[in-house]
Design a protein around this nucleic acid. Structure first.
Lengths: 144, 144
DNA sequence: TTTAAAATTGTAATTATTACAAATCTGATG
DNA sequence: CATCAGATTTGTAATAATTACAATTTTAAA
């Protein structure tokens, strides 16, 4: 069933943030909005590369930097190995399994911090990261 | 004024966590307990190297990995460039200025999440990261 | 068309981290 | 004290993530 418009959610997100929607930017933005997997740069590149053979890894880096700078996507640093990217807009938190490395959303809004506790700092982003074992890894640990 | 004992806080922290207190481990642990600056590997190496000329960067990496694995210090991933380390034990949060890059403690306990919201995940660590502008960088931005 | 600016690309460089084998240290034992 | 095994440290080389940068391509205005 076709939607009422072929202007993608990614297109809207880009233009809303003052980003010119080139083919590459659109592909990356759409990918992030359709795959809430907190992908790494390499994951995005590997996924898009087949259907966009001229895509360069550098473009993925450049684009993600632009998207983050313009506030169109969020950079997640829960994984010390490499950055991950998230296009979700609702307040939520992240969980990383220290067994298998998966990163998942939790629908838990990070706490709102009262200005009194912030000593004049201006907060632009609040990230709540939970680390531990996913159900499957927790079970494995208990058994063998 | 001498204290009642020359066994350092670092020594105690190491042995409490089942870590044999070698000279290098002790120096690193003491450094972390005396400098609550969330130093990077390189900062620790650069600070200790003069008074411990044979110290190797690899040893700093090895030791921090050991300390983190044994739960003697915390690894902070608020800075996407490199890991930082924290020996504080009281529940607290971290702030990073996106202007100047400084990382500071905030005496705000991360929220306790009810098991019902965690879907069988076992949480071992909760990190609350606030990003924004420190008072000085905020002022600079407003003016020029 | 022409042209200038913006965007993309590929390569090379840089930086953080890890792998690993050799050297050194430690502490127990004869 | 001398020996020895295991643990620890060290330096170098390898890997991985990211950035710098110059050349090419695309875009869109004149």
């Amino acid at each position: 069933m076709p939607t009422s418009s072929n202007i993608s959610a990614g297109y809207r997100r880009l233009t809303e943030h003052g980003i010119k929607p080139s083919l590459q930017r659109l592909a990356i933005m759409d990918y992030l909005m359709e795959h809430r997997t907190h992908p790494t740069v390499d994951a995005i590149y590997s996924e898009l590369s087949p259907s966009m053979p001229t895509l360069s890894r550098t473009t993925v880096y450049n684009t993600l930097k632009l998207l983050v700078d313009k506030g169109a996507v969020l950079q997640i640093t829960i994984d010390e190995k490499n950055c991950r990217y998230d296009a979700a807009t609702e307040p939520h938190s992240h969980f990383r399994c220290i067994g298998c490395g998966s990163v998942e959303d939790l629908s838990i809004a990070p706490p709102m911090i009262s200005p009194a506790l912030l000593g004049g700092r201006e907060i632009t982003d609040t990230e709540l990261y939970l680390l531990g074992y996913c159900p499957s890894c927790a079970a494995t640990r208990r058994k063998g």
